[in-house]
Nucleic acid binder design. Structure first.
Lengths: 124, 124, 124, 124
DNA sequence: GTGGTCTAGACCACC
DNA sequence: GTGGTCTAGACCACG
């Protein structure tokens, strides 16, 4: 599993890790029952503290994305794909709703806003 | 001037105040030379710490939106409308770019994303 | 708020803290909008590490029991009493279900089990 | 002998195995002198690490439930039935005492608690 | 002052 | 080897 961490964008690292796992599941890069890298392994790979990875994994467990398999690590839960599919849409939807609200508070017209969205998609 | 503050949405209160002032200027609700409420007045009105309002105003001064008028408080600067117009576009553009990046990381297709944007605009 | 921590019963300290808060809300000792002790304050009071309290509070936030009030700490959420009422029943129900299952696996008769329950309640 | 292992319920697997053996003895499914399955056999049957079964058997020997028969494996000890009878009561009693304590901390009334117990017994 | 995040390192149970 | 828990201490943003 490949993970891109940006330590300067304000989003906590554990949250970025959690999202990357969800995205990987949603995109089929991680399948049900597959083990995620161990806490220590991913921590060294990303050059972050094991506790940071552990926190990400803990929250994924609470969210039903990962299940602990005694002694062998953490694996993708059966219900994970559905939830990840839903979660990634929810994350985007929430952020879109928030920025739309701000744009409307700012008095932008619908067309101005859509223009910004289009150019942002192309640019990135 | 009317201000909506949400103490639980993650955006710093001083930042929310600053944006609201900018939006009011951009939308013509505050015109060049008009006084903004005093720090103490706005603070009591919003039930917020005066330091918070002071910080918002300080940053607005640094941004050239407000100018101090000796003995009478702070007023909208002559160059404010242009800057506010630009600032609100910049704020929205930044946030849009960020959410677009996340959507692409999440594997969303362009059409899915635009669909979310459209429904968000309508719903709100 | 009074909290009894037992460092030897296997239940993580942060979990015990979380439950005690829920019980206090369910029993009306903490009311909606009331602030809980600050992380540092409760940590020194219980002689545990601030991070342990912080983790308990974080999970209470995720559970909708606490809400952060910017700059002033954490307060009991409006929906907390209902959830705590429900949660404490759920905690007890889960544990009861689990011990009942074990008793049945162990071949105990209904009356034997009820006898144990009665004596346990009286004794404590 | 039939054994139900749940790798996700928090109770150590070796402990679950040990209890299942005790329950089987207490319920007369295993009689004095009867051989238990070999470590390797039970391990493959339960899809569990042989070390785990070995640990369970070792603790059962220390508890006087199993005795080694030279060259042929482990068998139910003569004093096993009495001890298993007692052990299963002790296990249940301990767990009941613990859950009762929690219920009382949580402010539950005696009747509420008994109601939960009754419904749990019926449901299961 | 508040909580949030991260790092570092220790200890434990389990397999 | 695995994850879980706890401690200790630093830094940051916010008010």
């Amino acid at each position: 599993m490949i993970c891109h961490i940006d330590a300067t964008n304000g989003i906590p690292i554990y949250e970025q890790i959690g999202r990357q796992v969800k995205y990987a599941v949603a995109n089929g890069l991680l399948v049900i029952g597959e083990h995620v890298p161990s806490v220590r392994e991913l921590a060294t790979q990303l050059a972050v503290n094991p506790n940071t990875v552990a926190r990400a994994y803990r929250e994924l467990q609470q969210g039903g994305i990962l299940v602990p398999i005694r002694g062998t690590g953490l694996a993708i839960a059966p219900e994970a794909p559905n939830r990840c599919q839903e979660d990634r849409l929810q994350i985007v939807r929430d952020r879109v709703r928030s920025v739309v609200r701000e744009a409307q508070q700012g008095g932008l017209q619908r067309e101005e806003f859509l223009e910004i969205v289009h150019s942002a998609w192309i640019v990135t």
